[in-house]
Amino acid sequence: MKKLPRYLILTLMAMTLAVAGCSSKGKTKPGDEVGGPGSGLAAGGAGTEEGGDGTGRPGEGAVGAIPTERVVYFDYDKSDVRNDARAVLEAHAAYLQSHPVSIRLEGHADERGSREYNLALGERRAESVKRALVIMGVTESLMNTLSYGEEHPIDPGHNETSWQINRRVEIIYP
């Protein structure tokens, strides 16, 4: 939690830039509509060493660095990994296979509904990410899950724009 804001701000700034560059909306929104640019950017951050496909951007991803995009988002009351999260997770899977460190998958929910159900939802989301990473080749024992439910929203607003940023799993490195 203490380490979050720094890279999140970076992430959000990066995404804002990406969105501003290819959309007239100019609003950070990790929903489906910006899934393209968001995931492209994330892949770029990680794709520098293992099979980098030329999507890397300037100023990002020194060789073998931890992927900069460390958040994946979820639909309302859902815990299945969305397609737009795939590239982000693949980047982490690639990194973790060459740098096997322990990570924590922290699940979060938006504020609506009951706190304990949201804790369960956050846990399910973290577990989904864990399963996806296992399929991508990451050793299961390297990953712990923890749910904070609705306790740590990124955006304190009470509308869909805020809620969709808050429904997420964060990949926490030591």
């Binding site: 460190v101 322990s102 990570i103 924590r104 804790l119 712990n144 923890l146 749910s147 030591p174």
Partner: peptide, 15 residues
């Protein structure tokens, strides 16, 4: 949530 010291150096927490 309680802090857990893991052997691998990750400051972990558990419910």
């Amino acid at each position: 949530y309680d802090p857990i010291l893991s052997a691998k150096g990750l400051r972990d927490k558990q419910m």
